[in-house]
Amino acid sequence: MELFYEIEGNGLPIVMIHSGGVDSRVWRYMVPELAKSFKVITFDGRGTGRSPAMLEPTSLVEDLRKLLTHLGLERVTLVGHSMGGQIATDFTLSYPSMVEQLVVIAPSLTGYNYSQEFTNYMASVNAAAPDISKIVELSLAAPIYRAVMASPHRSLLSEMHDHYMGRVFTEWRSFEVLWPEPPSIERLEKITASTLFIHGTIEWPDMYNIAEHFKRVPEIRFVEIQGADHMLALTHAEELAISIREFCQR
């Protein structure tokens, strides 16, 4: 298996899929709590952390399938944050028999057209390339990081972001991610797994629009965490872990 992964705890398997811009260290405060009840698998997505760089167009959904096959896991609960939530959603639609339950935390969504506010922000960040320090500065200045950047977790987020951007500009040879077709936004009502959607209150308006789309999932619950921003896996780890455990054990 090419991807770096770690396993902690025993019980029903939960696979954690991190967001872009960071690596599996983002789960470090949640894993100990979840591992009391479950077998928790965390991994660095391709091009992040200790996993190989992106060298060619890549399906992150297929990367996940290969990891589960390598571990001999036929059916799991998926927990995905941000782009990790997008991967988890696409995987659930592609391989429904392999997903027991789906948890998406402030997810992005394949096929969703983002607001001008968000696209302008991304354009300003990208325009700073190849100045890595400037990219990190502009990226983390976004309002959706207001809570985490005022917290003790600021240094960890900055370190992960800096490491990620450094790898992107020195090691990556491809930036193309291959997503299943048709896009998930057109197929959400076909999700058969019981689903939990969690988000904070400090977010782009897009997050609330994405939540509206997810209401088409037949069996879904929503949890909103007051005062949390996009990095609630760092700032509200205990509350997140409790919500996930209660959802999985109900």
Rank of each mutant, 00 (worst) to 15 (best):
L3Y: 06
F4G: 00
G11R: 05
G11L: 04
L12N: 06
I17N: 02
I17Y: 07
H18Q: 06
S19H: 05
G21F: 08
D23C: 01
K36V: 02
S37Q: 02
S37L: 06
F38G: 11
F43V: 03
F43H: 13
G49N: 10
R50K: 15
P52M: 05
M54Y: 00
S59C: 02
S59Y: 07
V61D: 01
V61N: 00
D63H: 02
R65H: 11
R65T: 03
L68T: 00
T69A: 14
L71Y: 11
L71S: 06
R75K: 14
T77S: 14
L78K: 01
G80D: 03
G80H: 01
G85V: 02
Q86E: 08
Q86H: 09
A88V: 09
A88M: 04
T89Y: 04
F91T: 05
T92F: 03
L93P: 01
S94H: 01
S94K: 15
S97E: 15
S97P: 06
S108T: 15
T110Q: 01
Y112L: 03
Y112A: 04
N113D: 14
N113W: 03
F118T: 01
F118A: 07
Y121I: 01
M122L: 11
N126K: 14
A128L: 13
I135P: 07
I135S: 02
I135T: 08
A142V: 12
A147H: 13
M149L: 13
S151L: 02
L156C: 05
L157Q: 05
L157W: 10
E159T: 09
H163W: 09
Y164D: 09
V168H: 03
V168K: 02
F169H: 15
F169M: 15
T170N: 10
E171W: 04
E171Y: 08
S174T: 09
S174Y: 06
V177S: 08
L178K: 10
L178M: 13
W179A: 05
P180D: 03
E181C: 00
P183I: 04
A193G: 01
S194R: 15
T195I: 11
L196Q: 10
L196S: 05
F197I: 10
I198S: 05
H199F: 05
H199I: 07
T201G: 09
T201Q: 12
T201N: 12
W204M: 12
M207G: 06
M207P: 05
Y208W: 13
Y208S: 10
N209E: 15
A211Y: 00
E212P: 10
E212A: 14
F214V: 03
K215E: 11
R216A: 14
V217M: 11
E219P: 00
F222W: 12
F222E: 12
E224T: 15
I225M: 15
Q226E: 14
G227K: 12
D229V: 10
H230D: 11
T235W: 08
H236G: 13
A237R: 04
A237F: 14
I242K: 12
S243K: 13
E246M: 13
E246Y: 09
F247H: 11
